[in-house]
Design a protein around this nucleic acid. Structure first.
Lengths: 204, 204
DNA sequence: CAATAATTTTAATCCAGATTAAAATATAGC
DNA sequence: GCTATATTTTAATCTGGATTAAAATTATTG
């Protein structure tokens, strides 16, 4: 019955979260006033309170959304029947597609400490789980021989950092988006193929 | 004559910038009050105004410092007489050492838009120059055959993103610092060795 | 030591931007 | 069209934290 209204509400809320994510990524949390977000939606700042309790919750929800996007990308990769290496590649492609595609601006989780206790812990937990899952993929690849042995924690941090930073410099240009989709996964999985520390490119 | 005083002033100011960088990295710009920074120094918030005009300038100076650290790392690498690949490796090692070593916490430049016009433009210019210099190293490596041909812009973004994200998860633990020093440069330059998109680790 | 300069604190302001309550408008179902 | 509900705005507050001025303390120098 409320299906229609619920849908409208959810749609608006989702638009709001995207607008907020965009502002936060571009202008930072402090640099973003609720008015900025509202303007992007053609609304008044006060209107946002119809959808969220306060600014903190707005950030919280942006981060929840970011976590979901990461989880979805991970789930899909984990479910595939492939080598560890290919799962990582698939996860990266998935996640990147979400970042630059129409799941639209995803917030960088750079202000977790400003969240209130309960929210902070929840986001940290989700974040930790994601890292763990990613490291598990790498482990799997090492075990099945598709990935070269490496310091899993550091390699995971390196790759994830690169991903996390994308929203900082990508601002919606579709040409750039395509280039990211095409290049990034390949660039990053290269970190998993080192089999010789002194190897060089064998070109020409 | 004022040498001693100047030194004291400069030292205190430097301590302040490090404390601020640490706060900003950990709690974000908005989450950081001047009181937080002052507490870390055993001072009162008002005391900070003896060293800087306002909070904006504090951020600005943190970013200037971050840019200098990057530039120093780059200068040293560029001056070396080595292949493009080795210059990149050297730059990465240098920069990473600064990030995790005693040049102490370096601020992540994540709130450039909150800077006032003139400062923002200056920081952006420095930032752009640094990217350009990094891409030049990659180009050089491709020309001299030490680096595999690649999308220079994207590869540069990937590697720099990984570097930029480090202060987000590294919080001063010396054991971790050593691990970063040991592993990160090698992990990241792997992105420059791809000579075959379908290559896999040739282990066991 | 006195005298001057450097540094920090105390104690007010001040303000942008978050938040709220009530009123106004839009929308949906009947 | 009428009624109830959903959504948005208007118009105030409210507040944390930035900022400032003056006073107090600490260091330096002749």
């Amino acid at each position: 019955m409320q299906k229609a209204t619920e849908t409208r509400f959810e749609l608006q809320k989702d638009r709001m979260l995207k607008a907020a994510a965009r502002c936060f990524n571009e202008k930072g949390y402090s640099g973003t006033s609720l008015k900025d977000v509202a303007n992007l939606l053609g609304l008044t700042d006060a209107a946002l309170y119809y959808y969220v309790k306060n600014k903190e919750e707005l950030v919280y929800l942006c981060y929840i959304r970011a976590a979901e996007v990461g989880r979805d990308a991970m789930m899909d990769a984990m479910a595939s029947d492939a080598s560890g290496y290919d799962k990582v590649l698939r996860y990266l492609s998935n996640h990147i597609e979400s970042l630059v595609g129409d799941r639209g601006p995803i917030a960088i989780m750079s202000e977790i400490p400003s969240l209130e206790q309960a929210h902070r812990e929840e986001i940290l937990e989700l974040s930790r789980r994601h890292s763990t899952a990613f490291e598990a993929l790498i482990s799997e690849g090492i075990r099945d021989g598709s990935i070269a042995p490496c310091d899993i924690r550091m390699t995971g941090n390196a790759i994830m950092g690169s991903i996390n930073w994308i929203p900082k410099w990508f601002h919606g240009d579709e040409t750039v988006a395509q280039r990211i989709r095409d290049e990034f996964p390949g660039i990053l999985v290269a970190c998993l193929r080192r089999n010789d520390k002194d190897q060089r490119a064998s070109v020409s």
